[in-house]
Design a protein around this nucleic acid. Structure first.
Lengths: 224, 224
DNA sequence: GCCTTGTATGACACTCAATGCCATGTTGAC
DNA sequence: GTCAACATGGCATTGAGTGTCATACAAGGC
């Protein structure tokens, strides 16, 4: 029981400064990362081309040169291999928010925070676009994506409450503000994937936050 | 192929004025409804008590007096039997919004629309509370719930765009406004299920909409 | 009455996701 | 060299979900 790596260790995500005080990555760790990358690559390739339901885990694993059993040692489910592609985003948004100046208005701080992963997507271009489209088009993936986003929201809400000195247990503002920021995120992602890169993601983000900003910055929402 | 009832016919949902110009329900239809109710009842009972993963579809079907195969003729998946309990809510919200006076501010119209299902939950009391808690506690159910809610949002956005004479294809406001209204819905549901009915749902709804209202009613969001 | 048609069901077989268990191979420390 | 830790593959098993077929039952038509 103790020996199992367990998919919770999330080998697909990058190191991130969590625990482990920056020890040099051992050989075994890099090997694990290599297999994870290989699996992700094979999965995205096959899934994007043939559709989520038309590809079996066995096929993905074989294409990556491992057994089906090994696949499940790296990813908790077939959905995971796709959704984990966006794994670190939640933490990225939260960390970005924490790094913004304390005096900044919530709408500005959240806009910058949410832009971090959106900018990454925009940079990765075609590759990210294919993944996003696959997720939005496949119900099972979309459901898992939304579930993960709900976790982001709770995370963001906690950070926001801390930032503003509010009690997330009684105030509704932190949760709703986090949710609104992610609504903007979703709207941009959706429009971006639909238009096929036609509209500038940064401009889209500005437009989306212009809509939600009045609620984010209204003082009325934070005392009551 | 043509003869299959297919789970898409959603026997669990109430009649609703969709197609079928109000024909008297035939015997077979009521029989179907009876089996669906029996399955739903057996499922909610067992799932709430033993947990989602600890109950097999076979057990649910047997408890309802039918075969596993029949279960899947009524519900598309094990998650469906729970989530469909909240099936008509999306249409309810949309219809309620359509019924509000055209001059009403968006925040007020949406608050009333969202209150419809929330009020139903509050009325059903213990029963609804058990279902909501089960959904929020079970990842697989939560994911499906969020997916369904995304469909509500698109529906609501379309109605809102129509109501305000906006083009949902170019404007971001309809989608974001619908999303914010459902954020408030979620926040209320979450708080209500956590507190164990301690706080009045109606008052909670007012508080939640007080937070998002500035964005819903800001004229800036609707021209750009 | 009988016959036909449509629909609901159950039984069976099958695919595939996901997990547990065990045997084996590889790596690295001592 | 030995030993422990870990990664892997193979195998078996559970359970979700689907296709197929045979049966049963209801509603007409004659």
């Amino acid at each position: 029981m103790t020996a199992t790596p367990s998919p919770d260790s999330r080998p697909g995500s990058r190191p991130e400064a969590r625990r482990e005080p920056r020890r040099a990555t051992t050989l075994a760790e890099r090997k694990r990362q290599l297999v994870a990358d290989e699996l992700t690559e094979a999965a995205l390739q096959a899934l994007a081309q043939k559709g989520f339901d038309a590809v079996t885990v066995d096929e993905i694993a074989t294409a990556a040169g491992v057994s089906k059993r090994t696949f499940f040692r790296y990813f908790a489910s077939k959905e995971d291999v796709v959704v984990q592609f966006l794994a670190g985003m939640g933490a990225d948004i939260r960390d970005a928010l924490a790094a913004r100046p304390a005096a900044e208005r919530p709408s500005q701080a959240l806009r910058h925070a949410v832009w971090v992963p959106l900018g990454q997507c925009a940079d990765h271009g075609e590759r990210a676009l294919r993944v996003v489209r696959l997720i939005l088009r496949t119900p099972a993936l979309h459901a898992r994506f939304l579930e993960r986003q709900a976790a982001w929201r709770d995370d963001l809400a906690a950070e926001l409450a801390h930032r503003l000195g509010l009690d997330a247990g009684t105030e509704l503002y932190p949760r709703l503000a986090a949710a609104m920021a992610l609504d903007a995120f979703d709207a941009v992602l959706h429009r971006w994937s639909a238009d096929g890169c036609a509209e500038d993601p940064a401009a889209l983000t500005d437009r989306a936050f212009a809509v939600v900003a009045p609620a984010l910055d209204a003082r009325a929402g934070r005392d009551a």
